[in-house]
Design a protein around this nucleic acid. Structure first.
Lengths: 231, 231
DNA sequence: TCAAAAGTGTTTTACCTACACCCATGA
DNA sequence: TCATGGGTGTAGGTAAAACACTTTTGA
């Protein structure tokens, strides 16, 4: 039985590609839709922008309402404006992305009832998605893959304390290729944005690795310099 | 005397930052608006997206209607969605940019009457602009400055045949700094994307420079490789 | 004592930077 | 012949890439 779908005029929406790292696996946040069209389909967290909110604010609000995650800073990466991307009317969507540290804030609970649930799903295992969300996801993935190769943004995904091997694994997952261990470590340590801790990994049945922290201040300084240095 | 301005609901618009090089000067396309709000102000070529066209098509159409330039391929670079950026209602605008070869197609003539004229204006000499167009222009300029430092896109601005000095001047204008002549030449020639012609500059009162052409095929090959090569 | 991952250096190559003088041409 | 921009090479430093073995630890 078909549901009647009202037509509407132009609206803007936001869709979010939120990355997280769980046990070395790169995941993104998906919701199960609780509304037509595509009711009960998997989709990126996304909804319509209100008249009186900027798109940046809308992104934050929408992510909160659909997943319960609060105050997540996101960047926009592309705007999708094909005519028939939404079956009910003209919807142009601005896609945002963010990278999250999963440790702790794993509780996902939609606040609105537009979503029946929100879950982390491995990027290797994305199901069929509503609308053109697969395209949006792919582009978002390309975005972070590209960005990580000139800016050490991987820390945003890692727990506060991490080993160099964890860091390297993350790079390998995102870039989808093997990296040389010695060269990787040399390069990372050379950046000078890692603080070596007097602590080691625990609970492993092999030689425990040193733990490191990301040094925000040095990162900011380095990044500043690279920006103004140009080419 | 105040004009009555109707309020409207959400609409999308497109704004274009079109770069051109004229006698070594970097310019952008501006129109003089022939409509409220901001009637008689300078503005970026921009207008409202129709219900039945994709934003990419809208960009091409709008640029044509406002400037008479046909079939210009543009890329989007940012979407501006602050609440009050348009005095009459909620307008979210997707900004596009392009780099044009000016030789030949300098005839600018608005086709619609939303613009009373369209002109090339030096980026060093941009007047006060309507809406938040100054912000959009600045961001567009940053975009090409950033892009040129990892991709040799400067050719799009130059005439078909050009000298190395012209190419260097263009880089200097966009990057806003002096470059070393020998290093610049070495680097450019090393890319292997320049075809040396058996021709020289004419009509200059000093030693005539060799002319070069941009080799599209080699560029595509190189660019391909860099994309898949990653880091 | 074994398995599993941590940790470590050197060489080669490519690229970037700095730097100054002679050459060709038209006026 | 002079003014103007065209054209050229080398040396030093830095960063990336290739490459394999020893060490530590818990089970």
């Amino acid at each position: 039985m078909e549901t009647f779908l009202p037509k509407f005029d132009s609206v803007f929406s936001i869709d979010c590609v939120i990355f997280g790292l769980d046990e070395g696996e790169l995941k993104i946040l998906l919701i199960e839709r609780n509304e037509e069209p595509f009711k009960n389909w998997w989709a990126l967290p996304g909804y319509i922008v209100e008249q009186d909110e900027s798109i940046d604010n809308a992104a934050e609000r929408i992510l909160y309402e659909l997943t319960g995650l609060r105050g997540i800073y996101m960047d926009q990466f592309y705007t999708f404006g094909d005519v028939n991307r939404h079956p009910q009317g003209r919807v142009i969507t601005v896609a945002y992305y963010a990278m999250l540290r999963l440790s702790g804030n794993k509780e996902l609970k939609p606040v609105s009832n537009y979503a029946s649930k929100a879950v982390w799903i491995s990027v290797k295992d994305i199901p069929k998605l509503a609308f053109d969300h697969e395209k949006i996801f792919i582009r978002g993935f390309e975005k972070i893959r590209n960005k990580i190769s000139y800016q050490p943004i991987a820390f945003e995904l890692l727990p506060e304390k991490f080993t160099l091997t964890q860091l390297q694994n993350l790079y390998e997952v995102i870039l989808n290729k093997k990296l040389d261990k010695r060269n990787f470590r040399k390069k990372m340590l050379n950046y000078g944005i890692l603080k070596e801790l007097n602590e080691k990994q625990k609970g492993v049945s092999y030689r425990a690795a040193k733990l490191y922290k990301f040094d925000k201040r040095k990162y900011a300084k380095l990044f500043q310099k690279e920006l103004t240095f140009g080419k």
